[in-house]
């Protein structure tokens, strides 16, 4: 009897969700919002992508870290002093480290700081190797972590060719200076990484890094939509991605030309 009621409840809930699945159109019209985001339907198909315009980013100068701070503050990313136990969602690497295979091909870029983050690959190796599906690919292209399920085996860290994953070697809480109560911290023993601000997209907001950039160097959008700004940039400008030879098909692009 009890079981029946539970099942009924779940089915009922899901059924109602199905009825509401039609995309909410008005978010498309609201200014400053990401088109396609924030529909109440459970994640529509798509391919979110981030384009970093390096010309604008470099103009901001090496000391600008607005996007990094915004992200790390929004997600309670701990600031751990020990470099080798640091947790990072988005950070800067010199060009030749971010693009080792390009070394010597673009001398003008040597030493320039490039923003790096999870590439939300179209064919993500981390998802392939995870033994519990704690990391998985959503229909909209976001490579998500389910922190509730992660067993901390770190296989995904071995599989990620971009060094985008961090492990919580210790309790992160003491290293979070100002806690954002709207987003949970993580705990010791789980792996974490950038989530393309999945929680903000659900409200129709662009990712925190994009919103924080005063130079318009970060553009976010859906590659499936031919009219999206990201699509237009990719059509018009010379862009590169990290380690394309590995076949992971990253969704973070860098405008360098």
């Amino acid at each position: 009897m009890e079981m029946d009621r539970r099942t009924f409840l779940k089915m009922g809930g899901l059924g109602l969700l199905g009825l509401m699945a039609a995309p909410v159109v008005d978010v498309l019209l609201k200014a400053g919002r990401v088109s396609g985001a924030g529909t109440s339907a459970a994640v529509t198909a798509g391919r979110w992508a981030l384009v970093v315009d390096m010309k604008k980013c470099l103009e901001a100068g090496p000391s600008c870290a607005d996007c990094i701070l915004a992200c790390h503050r929004a997600h309670n990313v701990p600031q751990i002093p020990d470099l080798q136990e640091q947790v990072r969602w988005i950070w800067k690497e010199p060009f030749e480290h971010a693009f080792p295979e390009q070394e010597g091909r673009a001398e003008s870029l040597a030493g320039k700081p490039f923003l790096v983050l999870c590439n939300h690959c179209t064919d993500p190796p981390c998802v392939r190797v995870c033994p519990t599906r704690a990391t998985f690919k959503r229909q909209d292209g976001i490579v998500m972590m389910d922190y509730h399920r992660c067993i901390g085996c770190r296989y995904c860290m071995a599989a990620c060719p971009y060094g985008a994953r961090s492990f919580n070697f210790r309790d992160p809480r003491p290293y979070v200076s100002t806690t954002n109560p709207a987003y949970p911290t993580r705990e010791r023993g789980v792996v974490e990484k950038c989530n393309f601000c999945e929680e903000r997209l659900a409200e129709g907001l662009p990712p925190a890094c994009v919103a924080a950039c005063r130079y318009g160097a970060l553009v976010f959008g859906n590659l499936v939509d031919p009219h999206s700004q990201v699509r237009q940039i990719l059509r018009a400008r010379y862009t590169i991605c990290r380690k394309p030879e590995l076949g992971t098909r990253p969704n973070v692009y860098y405008v360098v030309g």
Partner: peptide
């Protein structure tokens, strides 16, 4: 129901929000 099954409800919520990206729950009374 809450007394007996709030943990189940929370786990359903967790999976809905994190795994299905569904951020709204519709209760039985609508």
């Amino acid at each position: 129901y809450m007394r007996a099954y709030h943990m189940e409800l929370l786990k359903t919520w967790r999976d809905l929000a994190v795994r299905s990206g569904e951020k709204t729950y519709v209760a039985r009374d609508g």
